[in-house]
Design a protein around this nucleic acid. Structure first.
Length: 290
DNA sequence: CGCCAGTCCTGACAGC
DNA sequence: TGCTGTCAGGACTGGC
């Protein structure tokens, strides 16, 4: 599940491998991935001849920038994998939705089995990103901002962290990891968090994201970077994917429950305060005793 | 507007 | 062994 650290890792790979190169052809673009206003055929036509200027990231979106000022918005969704440096002779793996040929004879390819990702052409002068809050690692994302964004909100803090309009780049893995580090229960209504807790959460979130980038992201099931390598952060996760396993800090089994339609992983002892009904918890202390 | 449930999609896995 | 059913979730839409 590519989140900010994984997308950042891919963006760096795409930038390093393609900057300065001309796109000679778009060999394949699956129309189903194109979800913007410009249809797939036109996207392919307008990409041809573009020279790569760089690659920006905001939240989980990345934009392949060209010297013309145009860009290509990419989102990896749940299962997207963008690979650079492919030999044209290399067979297309299943669910290949985009193949871009470059002047150095190599190809950039995008695979996405679940097709939750997207590919949109962004003409020069057009705002590339949808309504996004500040990137979680940008200087605009401050503790003060977060406290303001949480104020008067009744939704669970976990849901607010996942709302890209509040802060861009946080997904299920790092929301859970940050809440664990900050010692905050995922169900806590955002607006009820004391200022000190918001500051802890802000600090924890940025720390966990930076640390994950250093490890080239989390490969839980399928993530790989632009060169096909897995990230190594999965081994360092504290709660995500560790349901029923002992908390690394106190030994209490990690619990899960559904928050805002997503599975939240947390330690009931280290993140106390909101256990309205035990019936919905799984993997808690009682389960472990059985 | 805020919040939540539903939708898309297919691979992985549990259970029979 | 092989089938069936359930789960996973990022971003968006629509209902209240």
């Amino acid at each position: 599940m590519p989140e900010l650290p994984e997308v950042e890792t891919v963006a760096r790979g795409l930038r390093d491998a393609t900057v300065g190169l001309r796109i000679t052809a778009v060999r394949w673009l699956d129309p189903r991935l194109v979800k913007g206003a410009i249809p797939a055929e036109e996207v392919a036509a307008r990409l041809a001849g573009q020279v790569v200027r760089g690659c920006d990231r905001r939240g989980k979106f990345l934009v392949w920038r060209f010297r013309s000022g145009d860009g290509l918005l990419l989102h990896l969704g749940m299962s997207g994998r963008l690979t650079v440096g492919m030999e044209p002779e290399a067979p297309w793996l299943p669910h290949t939705h985009l193949v871009v040929a470059l002047a150095n004879g190599r190809e950039v390819r995008l695979r996405d089995p679940r097709r939750f990702g997207r590919v949109d052409f962004v003409p020069a002068g057009t705002a590339p990103f949808p309504r996004l809050g500040p990137d979680a690692l940008s200087r605009h994302f401050t503790a003060r901002y977060l406290a303001q964004a949480f104020s008067k909100r009744h939704a669970p803090v976990k849901s607010l962290l996942l709302d890209q309009r509040v802060v861009a780049g946080v997904g299920n893995i790092y929301a859970d990891e940050a809440l664990y580090r900050a010692g905050i229960h995922p169900l806590t209504p955002g607006g009820t968090l004391p200022e000190a807790a918001v500051r802890r959460l802000h600090r924890a979130l940025r720390a966990v994201l930076r640390q994950a980038i250093r490890h080239r992201g989390t490969t839980f099931l399928t993530f790989e970077d632009a060169f096909g390598q897995a990230g190594s952060y999965a081994a360092r996760l504290s709660v995500y994917g560790r349901s029923g396993l002992p908390c690394r800090r106190c030994g209490t089994p990690v619990a899960t429950r559904v928050v805002g339609g997503r599975t939240a992983h947390y330690c009931p002892a280290c993140q106390p305060g909101w256990e309205p009904d035990d019936a919905k918890t799984r993997g808690g202390p009682r389960d472990a005793a059985l």
